[in-house]
């Protein structure tokens, strides 16, 4: 399971001088399953754009991205959905929780979207680790940003994946909660031999990164 980026440049920033300095844009890059990849960049340099391009949400770029040898632009909606169910998981910067569901239902939805690999007991155990056990029955969007972020992280861990793509996943968490969340993510990724692609503003030591790039 390999992500291969071949001279990818988003159309919207193609003319910016910063593209020339990037370790990612316009370069040929290969990320393998099991690798922890950190992409660091200041605001406005296209971190969220990169995440959305990798996850197949944006198609406005030049160059090619292939996953396991298949150009992701050529996947039909059902093929892309199957990859998202079984190979890629994501934590959005803007969280994207369903306002009409409780925290538990938001997490549960991802668990049962495909054949569940996490039991309800494991879900409760993970929620307990992240400190959100008590708010699971509250409407998700009524929770604090920090709680919503941990709901988003837990939701992403509910499915099988080869790559966990995260866009500033700890931006609303204090250091203690960052460590707890990172430990859980790291353990789950290692258990599945999955890779991480994480974007953030600054360098950090939350994970043992194999690759660290500036965007």
């Amino acid at each position: 399971m390999i992500f291969e980026l071949n001279k990818v440049i988003p159309s919207i920033i193609a003319d910016r001088p910063s593209v020339e300095l990037s370790d990612v844009w316009g370069k040929h890059i290969i990320w393998k399953k099991g690798q922890f990849v950190k992409i660091t960049a200041p605001s406005g340099t296209g971190k969220t754009t990169l995440v959305h391009i990798l996850y197949g949400l944006r198609k406005d770029y030049i160059g090619d991205i292939s996953y396991d040898g298949k150009n992701i632009l050529q996947l039909n909606p059902n093929e892309l959905a199957q990859i998202r169910q079984q190979h890629w998981s994501i934590v959005f910067q803007d969280l994207r929780l369903f306002s009409s569901l409780t925290a538990r239902e938001n997490i549960e939805l991802k668990r049962v979207l495909y054949n569940p690999i996490i039991t309800e007991e494991q879900l409760s155990e993970m929620a307990n680790q992240l400190g959100i056990q008590s708010i699971l029955n509250q409407p998700a969007t009524k929770c604090s940003y920090g709680e919503q972020q941990r709901i988003g992280i837990l939701r992403a861990l509910m499915q099988p994946f080869d790559f966990l793509i995260m866009d500033e996943p700890f931006s609303h968490l204090d250091n203690a909660n960052k460590k707890i969340a990172a430990a859980l993510i790291s353990a789950e990724c290692k258990r599945r031999n999955a890779g991480i692609i994480i974007t953030d503003l600054d360098k950090d030591d939350h994970f043992d990164y194999h690759i660290s790039l500036n965007l």
């Binding site: 909606p77 959905a81 998202r84 169910q85 994207r96 369903f98 009409s100 939805l109 979207l113 499915q159």
Partner: peptide
């Protein structure tokens, strides 16, 4: 909006 997010999270159009 809900359908877009469901598909974003991996729900297949067939589902």
């Amino acid at each position: 909006q809900e359908i877009i997010l469901l598909i974003t999270l991996g729900a297949t159009p067939n589902q």
